[in-house]
């Protein structure tokens, strides 16, 4: 079982799109992929083709066993669990994460957790095989948040693998291009790849689909495939 946690360093960095596209990219090699929405304001379901009227999720159930009813499967075979409308206070995110262990049907399965931006990483109980991706955009605010995060990571005991992943990168912007170049050498824990800004990521949701299905010849497709590939190699290194 491989767990990946994705969280925006602040709101609106495009985390959910990454989760949806990454899930489909990983699914291309026919392994079980689960995407769990832990964000109360989350909309993961809409990215993966869930009907708009559907309002229930795991947060409407008292226990995990009953919450499992809410697992949906999209056209690519990604199984996802939406957040819901929080009508039941029986479950919280840590119990969901714990309970997902029960679903572990094979070693190769991937669990992607779409985490809300306001919940700090330290509130998750992570072990050393987990990968935590903190999504940042190329601007000065994220730059300052990133360094703040680095401070907290240094002070605490952090055994998981933490990375900063740049999203919505636009090289035509002078600030973004300068900043990314700075980060690539000066920002520790920056991931060795970035997701380019691509209109199709936004457009795809209007089609209730993900970018990699809508535009196979786009750069976005490439980027998500690279992301998947990189995560695979990280995970296999963990296994060794």
């Amino acid at each position: 079982m491989k767990r990946i946690f994705l969280k925006g360093i602040k709101g609106g960095t495009g985390t959910t799109s990454i989760v949806a596209n990454l899930a489909c990219a990983l699914r291309k090699s026919n392994v079980p992929v689960y995407a769990i929405d832990l964000d109360p304001k989350g909309d993961l379901g809409l990215h993966l083709g869930l009907a708009w009227e559907h309002q229930l999720g795991w947060s409407d159930y008292p226990n995990f066993a009953s919450a499992c009813e809410q697992f949906h499967q999209d056209n690519d075979g990604v199984k996802f669990l939406p957040y819901g409308s929080h009508s039941n206070l029986g479950l919280d995110f840590s119990s969901i994460i714990e309970s997902c262990q029960q679903l572990n049907d094979s070693d190769d399965s991937w669990f992607l957790f779409d985490c809300p931006a306001h919940v700090d990483v330290h509130r998750y109980s992570l072990n050393e095989d987990d990968i935590f991706l903190e999504i940042i955009n190329c601007d000065a605010i994220c730059h300052s948040f990133a360094f703040k995060r680095l401070n907290t990571l240094k002070q605490a005991e952090s055994s998981w693998q933490h990375y900063f992943l740049t999203n919505k990168y636009n090289s035509a912007s002078e600030l973004e291009s300068d900043l990314l170049q700075l980060w690539q050498t000066e920002l520790p824990l920056i991931a060795p790849l970035y997701i380019n800004k691509d209109e199709v990521i936004k457009e795809a949701t209007a089609f209730r689909n993900v970018a990699i299905n809508c535009a196979p010849y786009s750069v976005a497709n490439d980027d998500f495939e690279t992301l998947a590939g990189w995560l695979v190699s990280r995970a296999s290194q963990n296994d060794q």
């Binding site: 380019n196 691509d198 199709v200 457009e203 010849y217 786009s218």
Partner: peptide, 12 residues
């Protein structure tokens, strides 16, 4: 390489 069109879409 890649190109980004005026409508924001990209092509490899």
């Amino acid at each position: 390489a890649a190109i980004r069109l005026a409508n924001g879409r990209t092509i490899k």
